[in-house]
């Protein structure tokens, strides 16, 4: 019984992080119709910044301050996004999708090396945050409390995002731009501003994903590239451009992966990619996507 609970928690843990990454990717695609191949690198960037900031402050700082520093990676990723969108991506909206994929692939290569330049080739850790919270007894087993914090951050982020998109004035503008950019523009919406805001929020989410993952694991080179393909699986299953889809997709991937690792470890990744392929064949727009 407690083993099952632990498996469930692990699945939720994984789904929370994936939702943050894939939700950001999906939001950006939904509003701007851009698939950002460098999105995984923003997640990695968030992880590195948080690990670095926590590492700098570690000596003698109060534990509460350390936990408050956790979102630093998210804000750094948001800032990076706010710089990248107007400078690199804006010239490409009018051009074919192929060019957008290419330019974001170039960006991926640059960001990967920027992280190598700033933080070196070795993993960066912030394990003290993970260890300080101790663990919880579930039946006969123990479970780290920090993982529960990650899950609650994931749930909170999903809630905030839902309220933001469906309950605020800005959300209305965002959805209007997503549905018909030209008509929204004709109604007086400053599309450029909406784009930069949407991109910044998407990057913030990816950075937050990286920030909360880093105490439990560590920041390594290549983590962004690995995360991106899994985020692709999530958005393809859920529907590119749909936040509900990203949530459901993340849950599906989280559960399949958790049980896959213990039941069929050799083909665990292959099964995930095959799920994406099957969904694309049966429902090309994804489970929650609008028909393309």
């Amino acid at each position: 019984m407690d083993i099952l609970v632990i498996h469930l928690f692990n699945a939720l843990l994984y789904a929370s992080v994936l939702f943050l990454i894939a939700g950001g990717l999906s939001l950006i695609y939904g509003v701007m119709r851009i698939v950002n191949l460098a999105h995984g690198n923003l997640y990695a960037f968030g992880a590195y910044v948080t690990a670095w900031v926590v590492g700098q402050a570690l000596a003698g700082a109060h534990p509460v301050i350390l936990y408050l520093l956790l979102p630093a990676g998210a804000f750094a990723a948001a800032l990076l996004g706010a710089i990248l969108e107007p400078t690199l991506l804006r010239p490409f909206y009018r051009r074919a999708e192929e060019y957008q994929l290419l330019v974001t692939f170039g960006l991926l290569m640059i960001l990967e090396d920027l992280m190598r330049f700033f933080w070196g080739p070795y993993p960066l850790t912030a394990t003290s945050l993970f260890e300080k919270m101790g663990s919880l007894k579930i039946g006969e087993s123990v479970y780290p409390r920090y993982n529960l914090l990650v899950i609650s951050i994931g749930v909170l982020a999903a809630g905030f995002l839902w309220a933001f998109v469906y309950k605020t004035r800005f959300g209305v503008v965002l959805r209007a731009t997503s549905q018909d950019m030209r008509r929204a523009s004709a109604m007086g919406v400053n599309v450029n501003r909406v784009y930069i805001q949407a991109f910044t929020i998407g990057c913030f989410m990816a950075g937050l994903g990286g920030a909360i993952v880093v105490p439990g694991q560590s920041a390594v080179l290549g983590m962004g590239v690995d995360a991106l393909v899994l985020a692709f699986v999530v958005v393809v299953v859920g529907g590119l451009g749909s936040l509900e889809g990203a949530l459901v997709g993340a849950l599906i991937v989280g559960i399949v992966r958790e049980f896959g690792v213990s039941v069929f470890p050799e083909v665990e990744l292959a099964v995930l990619y095959l799920i994406a392929v099957v969904v694309l064949l049966v429902r090309p727009a994804g489970l929650f996507g609008r028909t393309a």
Binding site: E97, E268, V277
Partner: peptide, 23 residues
């Protein structure tokens, strides 16, 4: 599929092979 979905689908399928070779 065409356009973006073609790109993503080809990518996802290639990763099936990668994960098999990897594991």
């Amino acid at each position: 599929y065409t356009r973006i979905f073609f790109g993503i689908l080809t990518l996802a399928l290639s990763q099936v092979l990668w994960s098999l070779a990897f594991k």
